[in-house]
Simulated assay, not measured.
Amino acid sequence: MSKLLYSVTMSADGFIAGPGGDMSWLTAHLGPNPLVDGLIDEVGALLVGRRTFGGDDPYKGTESEGEAFGGGWDGPQIVLTHRIPETPVPGVTFAGDLATAVETAKAAAGGKYVNVLGADVARQCLAAGVLDEVLTIVAPVLLGDGVRLFDHPGGAEVRLERLRADHVPHATNLWYRVL
């Protein structure tokens, strides 16, 4: 059975994107990471938020723009949105509600991971109790403002169990199971 994994790179002060969803900071911190390189083969589908799908892309302005994992992965993408476009997008399925998006993504993943992309989609998955794991790659940078890894106004405690923690020259990988 496919699991939902939220994998994300975060600044040391807890931001996954700069102000306005700016992802340009990230490219300086993408480098060889054996954990991520191995994970790519274990991902069967993506569950993507509309904002992420629409342009929050660390590869913006490069030949890898719009490509998952910088072009290192190819497969089905399910985009959660209330604004389904009239024109079909090859390889992309649009879903209007979380339950349908999760069900479609798990079926498309064929027993591999469904990789969740987008802070709001990840938050919705947590709230619905369907997110299984979180892989946070902590980059050695402070952004000071932007989109937080997990933002829940009023607070919400989500308990995690550490599955793995390791260091690569440019980051620290923290992999958790959601309890």
Rank of each mutant, 00 (worst) to 15 (best):
A68K: 00
A68W: 10
F69L: 03
F69N: 00
F69I: 05
F69C: 01
F69P: 11
G70R: 12
G70I: 09
G70Y: 08
G71C: 06
G71I: 12
G72R: 15
W73P: 14
D74R: 14
G75T: 10
P76A: 04
P76G: 11
P76C: 11
P76R: 06
P76H: 04
P76V: 03
Q77N: 03
Q77M: 15
I78G: 09
I78Q: 07
L80R: 04
L80Q: 12
T81N: 12
T81H: 06
T81D: 12
T81F: 05
H82G: 13
H82Q: 14
H82N: 12
H82Y: 01
I84A: 13
I84L: 14
P85Y: 07
P85M: 08
P85A: 10
E86N: 03
E86D: 14
E86Q: 13
E86K: 12
T87H: 03
P88T: 06
P88Y: 03
V89F: 06
V89G: 09
V89C: 06
P90Y: 02
P90A: 04
P90K: 01
P90D: 08
P90V: 10
G91M: 04
G91V: 07
V92M: 06
V92R: 05
V92D: 10
T93S: 12
T93F: 01
T93D: 09
T93L: 07
T93P: 08
T93I: 09
F94Y: 14
F94S: 11
F94K: 06
A95Y: 05
A95P: 07
A95F: 06
A95Q: 13
G96C: 00
D97N: 15
D97Q: 07
D97W: 10
L98E: 04
L98C: 02
L98S: 02
L98T: 02
L98V: 04
A99P: 00
A99S: 14
T100A: 12
T100Y: 02
A101D: 13
A101G: 13
A101S: 12
A101L: 13
A101R: 11
V102Y: 06
V102R: 05
V102L: 08
E103H: 13
E103F: 02
E103K: 15
E103P: 00
E103G: 02
E103W: 03
T104F: 05
T104L: 10
A105E: 07
A105Y: 11
A105H: 05
A105S: 14
A105L: 12
A105K: 09
K106C: 08
K106V: 10
K106R: 15
A107M: 03
A107H: 03
A108N: 11
A108P: 15
A109M: 08
A109D: 03
G110N: 09
G110E: 08
G110V: 12
G111Q: 02
G111C: 04
G111M: 05
G111F: 04
